[in-house]
Nucleic acid binder design. Sequence first.
DNA 1: GATCAGGATGGGAGCGTTCCCAAATAAAAC
DNA 2: GTTTTATTTGGGAACGCTCCCATCCTGATC
Lengths: 343, 343
Amino acid sequence: MSEVRRSRASGRPTLEQVAIEANVSRGTASRVVNGSLEVSPWALKAVQDAIRKLGYVPNQAARSLVTRRSDTVLLVVSESEDRVFGEPFFVNLVRGLSQELSSTPLQLNLMMANTARQHGKVEQQVRNGHVDGVILISLHGDDPLPTNIVAAGAPVALNGRPMSDIGAVPYVDADNESGARTAVEYLYRQGRRRIATITGPQDMAAGIDRLAGYRAALRGKRGVTRLVAAGDFGQASGEAATRELLAKDPELDAVFAASDLMAAGAMKALRAAGRRVPDDVAVIGFDDSDLARNTDPMLTSVSQPIQQMGRELAKLLITQLRDPEAKLSPVILPTELVCRESA
Amino acid sequence: MSEVRRSRASGRPTLEQVAIEANVSRGTASRVVNGSLEVSPWALKAVQDAIRKLGYVPNQAARSLVTRRSDTVLLVVSESEDRVFGEPFFVNLVRGLSQELSSTPLQLNLMMANTARQHGKVEQQVRNGHVDGVILISLHGDDPLPTNIVAAGAPVALNGRPMSDIGAVPYVDADNESGARTAVEYLYRQGRRRIATITGPQDMAAGIDRLAGYRAALRGKRGVTRLVAAGDFGQASGEAATRELLAKDPELDAVFAASDLMAAGAMKALRAAGRRVPDDVAVIGFDDSDLARNTDPMLTSVSQPIQQMGRELAKLLITQLRDPEAKLSPVILPTELVCRESA
DNA sequence: GATCAGGATGGGAGCGTTCCCAAATAAAAC
DNA sequence: GTTTTATTTGGGAACGCTCCCATCCTGATC
């Protein structure tokens, strides 16, 4: 008696059963579930009660079969360069994404895709309607993936400015240039006059922009010695670049590294060369990663609002999902110089 | 002519269209798609050609509607304690998971769930058939979530030994005790005789087991001074604990910290107290995180095979998915002492 | 009192699969 | 030549939902 009839073995109640329990039609029950307004208050309550009583949960598969939406967003991590992002990066980004997505019915799907075969899988997921939109992080060079996904019919949001300007694909990025500029200006204001920089790879927007920031900061300043050495964001490259810089100018009194890892490498090389940080040479990094709080002296670094980047990424996608015609522009988020002991 | 008739606006071909193109029935086409053997070679080829020609991709929604499977695994990150895992942890674990999953039709769904409300959402996803299985990482205390999920009808795999032994839920963990034991034995063999440890939180299995390893290593050894101070895996707690230890025994010559972060804190405190590492005091950490390679001196640490843990986690779930009755036992993976400069 | 408008409702028609059973065919056994 | 058995095949019937159209009220308007 108290036991409600259920279809099949699966204990899950269907919309039909809810409708019966509430003494309305399937149609009306559906309207309630989907928040349609054209339902009498009386029916509304009856259905809501029935839903609660039976513990009804809509079947997503049946729903997407007819709506042709999946309510799923795919997060693709294209991480062939292992250490491109400083460490808390991934977790924080995902945290921001989740936050923003949690107020929507959207699910987050995760995929690591380095190989071309896996890239194909991404497109396939778009084509078979398994995902409604795609978020790409850590793309390198000018990957054709974003364009392909758009062609397959799903909106895309990118993390990090792509190298070649892909028309309609919006992205989120930190203001790398301004972050670097602020850091270098800070060094200048501290009275440093032989300011070197260790660059990131020059085939990545972040690498390019941070170098541009360094140049912009010193533009027009007289009496400043400029020194540039190439790095690849990795610690070893920072160490090597620093040795190179010291050879070129033993008197240098400041180093701005385009990543914390390289800054850590720089400090190690400086110490090996008998320089004290920050007394002889000031060092500033970029990323404000965990690492920055764990070097000795603690590293002054440029911080990016990673979690907020995640949120903006989600917003960008949601907007496109709501209005496929929406024209979106890139979102550039401000960076901040976090002063610690190294400069 | 060359243009195939398509249903509706959506350009996606259906199984029906494939069948027509191949001159077979829908049933036969389905059998081919699902790799059934009872298909004549002739029909097999015709269907395969048709699939290729039309670019057919199965509609996952329709499929799960009837099979009642979603081919989706949910990864729940229950991360209220922010820094429980050192950073490469998350990425590496996910990498291992993806590797293992990539040979199956399983998708990976990601969810951050700290609040009870979000935990409810996990259960809901299980109940509405949106996910077939759940992987939980970073659970604290004796969360009822795993049990609830099992009750909701989906298999679960846990990362890290749960505090209260939950009957049928298998887990993957590193051999924390043996890792700690190895580290402390190493210190002993180096001639250290006043060996301290900084513990992790004692309401987490990892914290308890690592302390047990410390104790086991020194059991029965005579002439060794034992010193225990409590920490919480965080850097600050390592620093504080070290000061405390130095006060208790200014002569201590070794510290085994249950996390790299605490080890880094310890080194800072030791340096502040005028001790040299490793000359005066040897330090060993646990996790072999990025940090370990970036301290000065570089930290000797116990490494866990995180990526493999991810793979085992996936295997555990896949096995249960294949055979719901399967009785699985925990998987304990070996740890390894990575010797660097600090000990 | 008849007509009309508009909101609320009921239920049929799919959505694209898989599952299953019956039918057809081919091969083997008697 | 006939019966039995194995192998392939075809297509109806769900799966649980949303969409849409026809119907039914209720009350206002002429």
